[in-house]
Computed example of a mutant assay.
Amino acid sequence: MSGVETVAGTDISISASIPATFTAAGYTALVDWAEIGEITDGGSHGRKYNEVTHTPIKRRGTQKFKGSFNEGNKTLQLAIDDADPGQEILKIALDSDEDFSFKVTYQGGAIDYFQAKVMSFEKAAAGVDSILSATVELSLTTSKAGVGIIEVPAP
C-alpha cells in the first residue's frame, strides 16, 4: 500500500471552546465538537514562512533566511443547510472576535487541530442548476507561545 489516501470521508468540525492547552490532549478533551455539514471543498492549510533577504554590496549575492511564519487561511466551500449545527456555529463565529477550535479528521484517522477566526460566510446563488452554497474563510491563528496547527498521526 502506498500510504496515500483520498479526501473522501474527511470531517471538519468546529467548537466554540478553547482547549486548556494547545496540545493534542488539550484538543481531545473538548467535547462539544460539531461537524460542519455539506462541505464540498475543504481547502488547504499549513504554515508558511516569510522570506528575509540580505544582499551585502561587496558580495552581490543574496542570502535568504526564514522569518516570521503564518498559519494561513483556509477556504471552505459548502452547500447551505440552515439546520446544520456546525454551520450555525460558523455563523456565530463570524460575528465574534474570538478564536474558535477546528478539527480536521482525515480518511486514514490523522487529525489536524487549530484555532481560527471566521472571517467571512458569503452566500452564492449561481444559477438555476446549482445548489445554494457559501464560501467560508478561516484565518488560522497562533497562540502566544507560537503554537499553531497540531498534527496527530493516524493510529
Rank of each mutant, 00 (worst) to 15 (best):
V104D: 10
I131M: 12
N70H: 07
I111L: 03
A145Y: 04
K103S: 07
D41I: 02
A25N: 08
G46M: 05
I150W: 01
F69H: 14
V4T: 02
E35H: 08
I92C: 06
T142H: 08
I14W: 00
Y27H: 04
A25W: 00
G46P: 07
A93P: 00
A29R: 12
Q87P: 04
I131E: 09
Y106G: 13
G72V: 11
A83M: 12
Q107E: 09
S17A: 14
N50Q: 13
K91R: 15
I57V: 13
A124T: 12
I131Y: 13
P155E: 11
A154T: 14
A110C: 06
L132M: 03
G127C: 03
M1D: 07
G146Q: 04
A16H: 07
Q63T: 07
F121V: 11
S44D: 14
G37V: 05
M1I: 07
G109T: 08
F121Q: 09
G108C: 07
T75K: 13
T105G: 04
A24I: 05
F114R: 14
E51D: 11
P85W: 11
L76S: 08
Y27C: 02
A110T: 03
E151G: 12
P153N: 07
A154F: 10
A24S: 04
T6I: 01
V136S: 06
D97I: 03
P85G: 01
V147D: 08
P19T: 02
L132W: 06
E137Q: 13
A125F: 13
S2A: 11
Q77C: 08
A29D: 02
D11Y: 02
I111C: 03
G86R: 05
T6Q: 00
F22G: 01
V128H: 02
V147Q: 13
S13P: 09
A154C: 13
D99A: 11
I149R: 10
A25Y: 00
K117P: 00
D32K: 13
A20E: 13
V4R: 00
D99S: 06
E98G: 06
I149Y: 01
G42C: 08
D41V: 03
D97R: 11
